[in-house]
């Protein structure tokens, strides 16, 4: 799964620590999601969408969908 977390975070001038605090997770989790090493659970994905005030599909996209 691809995501735009790093771009969205940069647009808001947030550090990984800022986003981690908002999501109540560790900075390692934010980094792992940004680098594609970890796909978040549905509850965390919805929380990310709420924090960025965006629909979930504007943050995450399927690899197959993104390739086509």
């Amino acid at each position: 799964m691809r995501n735009r977390l790093k771009v969205l975070r940069a647009e808001r001038n947030w550090s990984q620590a800022d986003l981690a605090d908002r999501l109540e997770v560790s900075r390692q989790s934010v980094n792992a999601i940004e680098t594609g090493k970890y796909d978040p659970s549905l509850p965390l994905a919805f929380k990310i969408a709420r924090v960025f005030a965006l629909p979930i599909e504007q943050i995450f996209s399927d690899e197959v969908e993104a390739a086509s």
Binding site: Q16, A17, R27, N31
Partner: peptide, 12 residues
């Protein structure tokens, strides 16, 4: 080493 941006925090 723990894979985060910048220096580690006191908690880490």
């Amino acid at each position: 080493r723990i894979g985060v941006e910048g220096p580690s925090t006191a908690r880490e």
